[in-house]
Amino acid sequence: MGGFFKSSIGRKVAMALSAFFLMIFLLQHFAINILSVFNPDVFNEVSHFMGTSSIIQFVIQPILIFGVVFHFVMGFILEFKNLSSRKVKYIKNQSAANSSWMSRNMIWSGVAILAFIILHFIDFWFPEINTKFIKGDWSGLHEGVDGYRYFHELQENFLNPVRVGAYVVAFVFLALHLLHGFTSAFQSMGVTAGRKKTLQNIGIAYSIILPLGFIFIALYHHFNHH
């Protein structure tokens, strides 16, 4: 099996497996975030559970970080290998005649998503790590805030219109990435997704509805500050 993951196809399979993992994570992330729109109290309870559960913090979170880093690193490794496979470029190349923009620019939509993740980490993840692991405060409370602090922090972050704009742009890139990535991951796993209409439609729905949902949440909190 070690040899398998060194082969070109093995690496594509590894890329697809990490993509499936990240797509499931996105669903879970969205399911929790949307609670902030409908019920801030439940959102606070769930956030506190996610932020303090040992299994989630010490088992699931490292796996997730590994999955994210792996997907990016492998993406860059594959891109460099692919670039080195054609040293002399075509003088005239009509790639738009035979393939979609999304499929040809996965690396660029990926880089845009990476930039977003860095911003997202600065906004939410690093402060969380600081509060819990550096200050040692696992209470979920904050001075001057009734109940848990999570909803309050979420709203604070979406006050800045520039940040909200960056989030919207990033989710457009996520949609573009998923529009090719969803079916591509199935194809890499040996499923002929392109030929199976149902899977293709699920892919389109997932790739558009999910990022739109995240955009809605960001805009909702920007315009409905408590």
Binding site: S8, I9, R11, K12, L78, K81, N82, S84, S85, R86, S95, A97, N98, S99, S100, S103, R104, M106, H180, T183, S184, Q187, S188, G194
Partner: peptide, 15 residues
């Protein structure tokens, strides 16, 4: 042989 990887763009099938 130094061929690149597959990005599933589908260009090969079209051409």
């Amino acid at each position: 042989e130094g061929f690149g990887n597959c990005s599933n763009t589908g260009a090969c099938e079209i051409e």
